[in-house]
């Protein structure tokens, strides 16, 4: 694989001439802008960048990026992306999926692309609803969600995308939400991570699930409800008046008050992005009693799938004859000359 050459671009260079067709006010617009703002900052090359998506509102994303783009079939984007990455490991692949695409019909593929650790950025837009099919409840919808297919309210337990990703073996788990100013920082960290980087992006579906994330995403009181994690920094929120500590008896996280900024005295723990156990606690942390953990929850790279494939092919090819004629004549052969036959 070649080290990517950084090039200079502006946000405009990443916009296509296609009319964006999401509903007015959809959170997808903000995510699109965040991505288009981030890519120039990364020095990314549009010709080397490839957006691959499945089906759903979020999966229209590639049409609006002036890069290579492949809008595939429902749930299978991780498989297409895996094939493309194996065929050309130099491609910078961004996968775009949603809660239905990624966790319902495509749950299996999402699990395997994460466990294999194929180097790409995976953005899962979680709006807790099926938008493009007009508002049915999704695998991340909260219990009791009323929708055309659940007029009396849903009764199945929602999937939690970040917990799913970590459980599947992801080595990078990040979280943000559509209008958050910090989203580009999470995207940058995901891009810097070598391997499958999973980012859950809470996204407001203005038509079918309006403001469902307002309890933590609304600007008013956000400090009290959002915990932005930073590597090497204490886990503080509510203007540094609260923090998270480890309840060593129950082996779980606990909210503590921080008096006069003395977080050490309060036992607030310092975020270590490579600590998988803490990451598990962060993704399991129920919102309400706890703030919503955002930012980079976990980041601990290990060798990628495509690197292993390249290395294996090199090893397997070492000293091997690549003459096709010889391959065809492999094994026990015999020669027919006229009518007499001799083994060779």
């Amino acid at each position: 694989m070649n080290a990517p050459v950084k090039i200079e671009t502006t946000l405009k260079d990443w916009e296509t001439d296609q009319e964006v067709r999401w509903c007015p006010g959809c959170g997808d617009y903000a995510i699109l802008k965040a991505v288009q703002r981030t890519l120039p900052q990364l020095g990314a090359n549009p010709a080397n960048t490839c957006f691959i998506s499945g089906i759903g509102c979020s999966s229209r994303f590639p049409y609006y990026m002036e890069t290579y783009g492949f809008h595939t079939i429902h749930g299978r984007a991780p498989a297409f992306a895996t094939g493309a990455k194996l065929a050309n490991p130099d491609l910078d692949i961004w996968l775009v999926t949603g809660d239905g695409d990624g966790l319902s019909i495509g749950g299996n593929h999402l699990m395997h692309v994460l466990r294999r650790n194929v180097n790409m950025q995976i953005m899962l837009f979680n709006n807790e609803i099926y938008g493009l099919t007009k508002g049915q409840y999704s695998p991340t919808s909260r219990e009791g969600t009323k929708s055309p297919s659940t007029p009396l309210g849903s009764y199945d337990h929602p999937a939690r995308p970040a917990a799913f990703a970590l459980g599947a073996g992801a080595r990078f788990v990040g979280r943000g939400f559509d209008v958050s100013k910090n989203l580009p920082e999470v995207l940058k960290a995901a891009h810097a991570h070598q391997g499958a980087a999973f980012i859950e992006i809470f996204q407001n579906c203005i038509v079918y699930n309006k403001d469902v994330f307002d309890d933590f995403a609304a600007p008013k009181g956000a400090e009290d409800r959002q915990l932005w994690l930073e590597n090497g920094k204490p886990m503080l929120f509510a203007k540094e008046t609260k923090g998270l500590t480890l309840d060593r008896d129950a082996l779980c996280l606990k909210v503590v008050d921080v008096v006069d900024g003395d977080w050490e005295a309060a036992g607030v723990i310092v975020h270590d992005v490579t600590n998988r156990s803490i990451a598990h606690m962060l993704v399991e942390m129920p919102f309400g009693p706890f703030p919503m953990a955002l930012g980079v929850l976990y980041d601990d790279p290990r060798p990628t799938f495509e690197t292993a494939a390249i290395e294996e092919r090199a090893r397997a090819s070492e000293g091997k004859d690549t003459n096709l004629a010889k391959l065809l004549a492999k094994g026990q052969t015999w020669t027919v000359s006229g009518t007499a036959q001799d083994p060779v």
Binding site: R76, A79, F80, A81, G83, K85, H109
Partner: peptide, 17 residues
Amino acid sequence: AEDEIAAICAAIGASYA
């Protein structure tokens, strides 16, 4: 691949690339 669908989808992804 993890299943038959992923096997063909990965092959198409490789052809694309």
